[in-house]
């Protein structure tokens, strides 16, 4: 029963975090507008730090709850089916961040191409400098490499579900059920099945942790590359994408009569 409450608690935390992200988004949008009206770029830093603290908090909580029930974190009931289908190891795929940058950069570039051609600075993501583009590209390649490593580790771990101990144990228990030895099955569950499944879950926890670490690291590295005003544009785009996909997924689920 306690597990049930814990599950609920992360779901509740997620809901409140979504509200917080909504608020952050509003703050970011108004800050980006104020910046256009003569604020100094440094004035954006406290807000950016606040938004980042919220991301860090999210992953700290996620890590805490994952230790309690990693399976739940990998099968998150607080997400819609749409989001769930696009998750990579319990969260957003880190390399998506670069597509987000390039897509937003493209939109802002096309909007003000003439200025950029003339060598003027727009300050937004369309104005990524040579150095920034190189850094983003390097980070992207590095992130994809790490992503592949974790995916490979995940694959290896998933394959252990059919290792000898699992195959043997499933056979033993099946035979017991067949010969009507239900009483012994409970003992085997406790003595052998649970201890065999435990490292499977532990492995998942480790992989989830690596995936979440990569997600957070990617955000932190992007923070180092972009200027404050570019970062505000990036955080706005990221929040908008996250919040709207969440909404759309939930609407879809509601239409399909799914109550997650």
């Amino acid at each position: 029963m306690s597990t049930h409450q814990e599950r609920e608690t992360f779901g509740n935390f997620f809901e409140s975090w979504i509200k917080e992200q909504n608020k952050d988004l509003e703050d970011l949008v108004s800050a980006s507008k104020e910046y256009d009206q003569e604020q100094t770029e440094e004035s954006l830093v406290p807000l950016i730090d606040q938004v980042f603290q919220h991301y860090e908090h999210y992953y700290a909580e996620k890590s805490r709850w994952a230790k309690q029930d990693v399976l739940k974190m990998l099968n998150p009931s607080w997400r819609s089916n749409l989001e769930d289908a696009f998750l990579w190891i319990g969260g957003w795929r880190p390399s998506m961040a670069f597509h987000l940058i390039y897509s937003k950069c493209g939109l802002q570039l096309e909007a003000r191409l003439e200025e950029l051609i003339r060598g003027l600075h727009t300050g937004d993501l369309g104005d990524l400098s040579a150095t920034q583009l190189r850094q983003v590209d390097e980070l992207q390649r590095d992130t994809i490499e790490k992503e592949k490593e974790i995916s490979e580790k995940h694959a290896n771990h998933q394959e252990t579900m059919a290792d000898t101990s699992m195959v043997q144990l499933s056979n033993v228990v099946t035979e017991m059920l067949r010969s009507g030895e239900e009483a012994r099955v409970a003992d085997v569950m406790e003595e052998q099945v649970e201890p065999t499944l435990e490292p499977k879950e532990e492995g998942l926890l480790e992989i989830l942790q690596m995936a979440d670490d990569l997600r957070l690291k990617t955000l932190r590295e992007i923070k180092k590359i972009l200027s404050p005003v570019q970062l505000v544009h990036f955080l706005i785009a990221a929040a908008e994408l996250h919040l709207r996909i969440h909404d759309w997924g939930k609407m879809k689920d509601a239409r399909n009569g799914i109550n997650r």
């Binding site: 770029e41 200025e115 003027l120 600075h121 300050g123 200027s227 005003v229």
Partner: peptide, 12 residues
């Protein structure tokens, strides 16, 4: 940054 900002305002 300051330069960017100023240029931005001058040539919008």
């Amino acid at each position: 940054r300051r330069r960017r900002r100023m240029e931005m305002h001058q040539f919008r």
